[in-house]
């Protein structure tokens, strides 16, 4: 099949960016989206042009490195998959595909389709952990955890930190990302102790870093490659409220 590509090109963080058009023939259904971009880049290099910078690593949907805005949707037209799991069979012959980087206040562009998502690491640093030291922990079966709670914690914990939630949110809010961690740890006895303090700290850092607030439109849930539920935001809000009542 043939595809027409409209790709955001930007030399560096300070440069002015613009869309550039490319065409590729001989694209096959079974190719992954990133393999299609590999093909474009090898063509560009041979023609003496600069290849398109885009990030990826595991190419199996778990590391969270890739993240492209494709035809107006984070990770493109597939349901609950990351960009690297997207295959060309979901596109039509001759289709124009628009490819952009994440666009959110908290994720400045580094080059072309590569953004800086360090903000998510900073939010984690604010409290996305259990304050337990290494060594001297009790036997794993000393504390029983119901299967329901363990499963729900696991649902929340499957977040890959890709940034799609903030990228699609009209407020550029990182609430679903925070909620996933707060909810995972609040559901488990190990993390319950610090649950409300954790919620308050993580939300405060999110605010500082230029992400907006949540207005419950649910776009994040719809576009999350791991299908993380909005219900976790409700749990985050409860913990956040508790923290504010306490103080």
């Amino acid at each position: 099949m043939k595809v027409k590509l409209k790709i955001w090109r930007q030399a560096n963080a300070k440069a002015k960016g613009q869309f550039k058009n490319y065409e590729l023939d001989d694209i096959q259904d079974e190719m992954s989206f990133l393999e299609m971009l590999d093909a474009l880049n090898s063509k560009l290099i041979k023609e003496g042009e600069n290849p398109v910078a885009f990030e990826n690593d595991c190419r199996e949907g778990i590391c969270g490195t890739c993240g492209l805005f494709i035809n107006g949707r984070p990770h493109g037209p597939g349901e609950q998959i990351a960009t690297c799991q997207l295959h060309m069979r979901l596109f039509k012959d001759g289709e124009t595909i628009v490819i952009e980087p994440w666009r959110a206040g908290g994720f400045p562009i580094i080059k072309d389709l590569v953004t800086d998502r360090n903000a998510y690491d900073k939010i984690m640093q604010a409290g996305g952990f259990v304050s337990v030291n290494i060594g001297g922990t009790p036997d794993s079966n000393a504390v029983l955890i119901s299967k329901e709670h363990a499963d729900e914690a696991m649902d929340a914990a499957s977040c890959i930190g890709c940034g799609a939630c903030a990228a699609i949110c009209k407020n550029s809010s990182a609430m679903l990302f925070i909620a996933a961690k707060v909810s995972q740890l609040a559901l488990l006895p190990q993390g319950k102790v610090e649950a409300s303090k954790r919620a308050k700290r993580m939300v405060a850092v999110m605010d500082e870093l230029g992400f907006g607030n949540c207005s419950n439109t649910g776009a994040c849930e719809a576009e999350c490659p791991k299908g993380i539920s909005l219900a976790h935001i409700a749990r985050l809000n409860r913990e956040f409220l508790k923290a504010n009542i306490k103080s």
């Binding site: 952990f129 259990v130 922990t137 119901s146 299967k147 995972q184 190990q190």
Partner: peptide, 10 residues
């Protein structure tokens, strides 16, 4: 487990 890793449970 102490760090909150949600291992599968019975």
């Amino acid at each position: 487990t102490a760090q909150g890793v949600p291992f599968a449970r019975e």
